[in-house]
Design a protein around this nucleic acid. Structure first.
Lengths: 153, 153
DNA sequence: TATGAAAGTTTTAAATA
DNA sequence: TATTTAAAACTTTCATA
């Protein structure tokens, strides 16, 4: 599963994480190589699934998404059927930006991005009407101090 | 601060979020318009800061980042000086992918991506040696169910 | 908004070290 | 085997209608 990267591959990934809109020439210059070898390496890493989706990060606040909640969920249900239904609900709801199953006494954590507190409540009511959860704590973000998708390669 | 989008702008953003590597022609076709107007809209949204960084999402597991923690922090310190130091520490550490200041009795939440539990411990020790925190709870992710940066436009 | 032309980029192939 | 060169196909960018 673990892909073997050399120093050049690492540098290419750092550049792509920093700015995926750069030209091949520019990336090649930055990593001290030239176009074709860089292109071949990127192609190989894309095929291996190391490099995934190419996307843009949008300004959530400017677009009216003014509320962000981290939701801690405890459940008493641990059956396969319940879990499948719960995961499906999370994947289908676009306001859920992240969902993790946890070790320890909190079972799941979600990151939920919505326009306002009312929209969060609507999301919450819809979720608990779909699946039974034992205990839910919502932590409201007052300030996004840092947000990056870059891995510390 | 809030930018006024019409239906076409929204469709363009949806396409860019889905795949920022598409050509203008392709985006134009998908949103039912043509190259020039789409290009002008994208330019305007970039200039307004609505569209930010263009990046690639990498496969964390395949690259050996096998541990992800959500860290809940309570502090007794609320002075400006302490806060400035704490924020600086978070911004400088590349393993911190997200950091939010919260409302309520938990003061901060972090998302920390590291190679393994040992690397998390090293991060934790370094952080608490830099700034005093009152109480720290680390939630270990067992499974990333969902992860997207897309806003539900 | 549409057209189109100039500049730049990606992609593939052939040649070279 | 990996890199450089080269050239075709495609894209972006922008002036003009």
């Amino acid at each position: 599963m673990s892909f073997r990267l050399d120093e050049t591959d690492r540098k290419i990934l750092l550049q792509l994480q920093r700015d995926a809109g750069q030209s091949l020439d520019e990336i090649a210059r930055q990593v001290g190589s030239s176009k074709t070898p860089v292109w071949n390496r990127i192609k190989k890493m894309r095929e291996a699934g190391i490099i995934g989706q190419q996307t843009v990060l949008l300004d959530a606040e400017a677009l009216g998404f003014e509320a962000c909640f981290f939701v801690l969920i405890r459940t008493s249900e641990h059956e396969a059927e319940w879990q499948a239904k719960f995961l499906k609900a999370l994947k289908e709801r676009p306001e859920v930006q992240e969902a993790h199953r946890l070790a320890g006494d909190i079972d799941y954590i979600l990151k939920v991005r919505v326009k306002n507190a009312r929209a969060y409540d609507a999301f919450y009511q819809a979720l608990i009407s779909e699946v039974k959860v034992h205990n839910v704590t919502a932590l409201l973000s007052m300030e996004e101090i840092k947000a990056t998708t870059a891995l510390p390669l």
